[in-house]
Design a protein around this nucleic acid. Structure first.
Lengths: 138, 138
DNA sequence: CGGGATCCATTCCGATACTG
DNA sequence: CAGTATCGGAATGGATCCCG
């Protein structure tokens, strides 16, 4: 398993004592840290869009019709912050801004894409399981 | 791309008119529907744990020391609802409950695991990008 | 056109207390 | 042991208005 589930080495290792949870830094866990961002409501949708080709702000907005302007801006900024996408401003009037994937983003999207393929292929099975669960007596 | 980004066929296709967003059912989008659950704060951690072997409630609690009892219960129920894990109750005194992955869960964890591998391998790059972004002038 | 700033609703999550 | 119930705070996301 990737280190431990929480990805840290207990400094009191060898001492079979209880560990002080408050002293641990769980943000060092890659699973948590990366999945946090990927798991956002709009992240994968935008990564999928930008995996095809660069798009401008307005184009992305049209591709994901129910995203708010605020969340589009914010999600794009967060993806840029993590190094998955780049932002280029063209000083035209009115200005235009283009977003494109970075190499890091493309390397992320490789395994991510396989997961999305799975989601599409097994969506029915998941929905069926859900329906079954919801119908059994409480 | 998997259908459109939002995964629906515009029924007014061919008519280049604006579509009525309020009439669309975005929950039919597998990407959204599956990633929603996977993206939860604890889901991947628990899936990773259970991908190894079945575990009891208390064991999972110890493997993820900072999860609350409430969230452990709830996340496990949600994962069970989606068909990724099974729950078996042994009517001992006191009762013991074991959680194990289903075939569906194992098939999900295959691509998911690749993504977690990526996260572990590229965590430093992500953190570096983040630090760079946060240091550039506001 | 591509945002920033504000305000508000919802949802998520943790802490605590109680139970078969 | 493995939950359930309730509460409150934090985080998340949407709506609206403004701006260069």
């Amino acid at each position: 398993m990737r280190g431990s589930v929480v990805n840290f080495r207990n400094k009191a290792e060898g001492a079979a004592r209880a560990i002080d949870i408050s002293k641990l830094d769980f943000s060092n866990c890659p699973v948590r840290d990366v999945m946090q961002q990927i798991g956002g409501k709009w992240s994968t949708l935008l990564l999928e869009a930008l995996s095809q080709q660069p798009y401008r702000f307005g184009a992305l907005r049209r591709m994901v019709p129910d995203i708010s302007q605020r969340m589009l801006t914010q999600t794009l900024r967060d993806l840029q912050r993590d190094g998955y996408i780049e932002r280029e401003v063209f000083p035209t009037k009115p200005p235009s801004v283009e977003y494109r994937m970075t190499d890091l983003g493309r390397s992320l999207f490789e395994p991510l894409s396989r997961l999305l393929d799975w989601a599409e292929a097994n969506h029915d099975a998941v929905r069926a399981a859900r329906a079954r669960f919801d119908q059994t007596p409480p």
